[in-house]
Design a protein around this nucleic acid. Sequence first.
DNA 1: CGTTGTGTTAACCCCGTGTGAAACTCGTCC
DNA 2: GGACGAGTTTCACACGGGGTTAACACAACG
Lengths: 231, 231
Amino acid sequence: MIDVVLCVPSCEGPIRKALEVTGVTPAVASTGRLAEVSALEPAGGFAGAVINAAGFPFTEAMNLCRQLRHRSTPVGPIILLVDHYQLDDLTFREDLFDDFVVGPFDVSELATRLRHRLRRAGNESVAARVVHGDLAMNLETYQATIAGRVMDLTYMEYELLRFLATNPQRVFTRETLLSRVWGYEYYGGARTVDVHVRRLRAKLGEEHAHLIQTVRSVGYRFGVPEREGGD
Amino acid sequence: MIDVVLCVPSCEGPIRKALEVTGVTPAVASTGRLAEVSALEPAGGFAGAVINAAGFPFTEAMNLCRQLRHRSTPVGPIILLVDHYQLDDLTFREDLFDDFVVGPFDVSELATRLRHRLRRAGNESVAARVVHGDLAMNLETYQATIAGRVMDLTYMEYELLRFLATNPQRVFTRETLLSRVWGYEYYGGARTVDVHVRRLRAKLGEEHAHLIQTVRSVGYRFGVPEREGGD
DNA sequence: CGTTGTGTTAACCCCGTGTGAAACTCGTCC
DNA sequence: GGACGAGTTTCACACGGGGTTAACACAACG
């Protein structure tokens, strides 16, 4: 399951970067009205919220915090982005938020705080992922699932599939794959790639084997087959 | 009653100012040895701790955090002072501290965080137990049980198992484990991890040995090898 | 002193990986 | 259309390197 973090009123620059690094998906609510927020909410609720009180009337931000806290389905940790001059306003409002960052916002600090709060809230599944159709690869657990079934991949198989899946629809020659997946100074036969593709297709299973397509006399491509000539 | 906050290794400049503003009394421990710390402790225990990891060997600071957390009379919130380049080192150590400030240290931010954590203290508690399947670890008494049976773990075994169990499903390289569990940079000796894993597996017993899985040419992972949240 | 915990070294074992050859498929040329 | 060849799939096997294991060295502690 992918964690969704509420962002108000926007998710630009360092904020988006920090969310990416942490491995969570932003849901942007520009106004911060409860109705708008609720419409964005995933089934399991938000994993957390990042509220930029610096680009927002401060009392509105506080109201939003209060409302989020009082909902029936509770939101995860609330992180406030504030300017330095707003620090005093936080006093006696400690219960409305869980952490805060002082601008100018730094990507690593923001990411560290996000991770800190999410993990302290018992959220284990903060992890970078590659998801493409029925295929999901968790980069931190080294596990890949196809249509929910765990694939038991070896190291090289995993690396190859990861490379292909992170560049869907693109065709790679065997030489490119060898240099990018195996290493730049790898010296070996091009047949190696074929065999690994074959093993991957076998583990993907009959119905998903076509996810890796052969482009004759060129190389291999990952993704659902497209119509020829449309690309 | 006056709140006393432990300060390591010193309490100068903005730190002292922030403590004054917040209205708490500092107790300075220059070395951070547990004996020195205990001598300073007031009857009711420390209200919190401010540990300057920037002016301190980082792993020593982490060890101090760990020891403070494991004491019978618990310390209040632990706030870490770090330099920007140390942010990455905080990952996977989220349980050891409650908040942090990135240098150069600003008086108002530090004071705000102190106040925030002190007022929130009691509301949130660090899990004193780690439970994962048949494994239960009591972080205060250093006891671990597997399927009800007490495991007689040594310090390092316990720390390694705790680290793995608090980050289930995630794969760690031997280097990461060495730096995060052992705490210092290691020269050679990656086999050390293997041996400790082997000893842990032996103490887990035949039927639970698989709780620590080997991910070939990557590292080790804790957890049941079942399907993950892929859908 | 013995005991216990911890890290190192080296032998052993096994799995993943790469390779060559055979079988097969597809496109092309006569 | 059939023959041919280039490209691809499939298979079996050998090798090497990573992992496991046991035994040892050494420090800390009583």
